[in-house]
Amino acid sequence: MSSILVTGTAGFIGSHVAQLLLARGDEVIGFDNLNDYYDPTLKHARLARLQALPGYTHVTADLADRAAVEDVFARYKPKRVVHLAAQAGVRYAAQNPHVYVASNVTGFLHVLEGCRHHGVEHLVYASTSSVYGANLKMPFSEHASTEHPLTLYAATKKANEQMAHSYAHLYGFPCTGLRFFTVYGPWGRPDMALFLFTKAILEGEPIKVFNHGHHKRSFTYVDDVVQGVVRTLDTVPGKDPDWNGLAPDPATSGVAPYRLYNIGNEQPVELLRYIQVLEQCLGKPAIMEMLPLQAGDVPDTEADVSDLIVNVGYRPVVPVEEGVAKFVAWYRDYYGV
């Protein structure tokens, strides 16, 4: 049994990760500021499920509050850290850029400092497929360039990867970054496409279909992501082949106990097909407003997960037909529709 700090436990992915860790017997210290970026009612509902489980302790605080983060590390002394809290949303950054830097950059620095000063064995943190930006070579590989982010959100996550590498190199504690690809599923975020589409279709309202629905995404079911996070947490990168851990990857480090992995479904799905599956699950057609590609969006994403398969022994497998059906079942139950 380990003591694990999980940030963002009132969030979509964080709440699922905390549940799996608790189910296997770990003690979880949850950290979340419960902000109102989207409906806090949903965040409180996720949190209530965790607080009903033995082994869970919650701290309500902000990552940008240095003293609060330092206090969590000093008081609870976590052995490992899963850092999932961040200001999410690709387009929201255009209206609130300062929030992204405060949470995603300054907040991440506070987490790194906590790990550095309190002997944390392994830090696993969330990055995003958005870091691939203008890179058009498919599938996206961790070995490819990520020097051209198209949004501030992606730029903050790229900064996280570089900050983590510098800390792993300077202070020797293992860090692993995970690039998530379009995560969906029960308890998801209301600002994400599947949530917005489901609500609109059930209410008979039109949905906005960008790029006329022809772009593809590696839609990844949340349970697949959570398994990847937890299995990666147990796969500690090393400093060299003789160290008790996974040797560094020459393409991404070569000098530090540091790794990067994509976590995404290897089978990208066109948006129109995704909507078609949702229509079948809801038993109701969508009214589609066809629009051009949004600024900052990439035409397609496709995950290369070969490193994840080789080193962690895991690959996401849930098809959209199964995943969307599970989301719809949850949505109908949660909202009573």
Rank of each mutant, 00 (worst) to 15 (best):
H165M: 14
V101Q: 11
G188V: 09
F181M: 06
P139L: 15
D333G: 10
C175L: 07
F180I: 04
E279S: 00
A155P: 06
K284W: 11
T146Y: 15
A94I: 12
L150T: 10
G55Y: 12
S3I: 08
T235E: 01
G107K: 05
V124C: 00
Q51L: 10
G55T: 10
G188N: 06
F180G: 03
I207W: 04
V17A: 11
H212E: 07
D307H: 14
F173R: 04
P190N: 08
G172S: 02
T41E: 15
N262D: 01
V269D: 00
V317T: 13
A48D: 13
N211S: 14
Y274A: 00
Y125A: 14
T41Q: 15
A134N: 02
R189E: 13
A52P: 10
L282H: 02
N104Y: 09
A329E: 05
Y125E: 08
D71Q: 15
A93N: 03
F31L: 14
V59Y: 01
K79Y: 11
E203L: 15
D26Q: 03
S141V: 08
I4L: 04
L150D: 00
T146F: 15
Y221I: 05
D223G: 05
E289Y: 06
A155M: 13
N35F: 13
K239T: 07
H212N: 10
Y314L: 10
P248I: 14
N265K: 03
P174H: 08
N311S: 15
L278I: 09
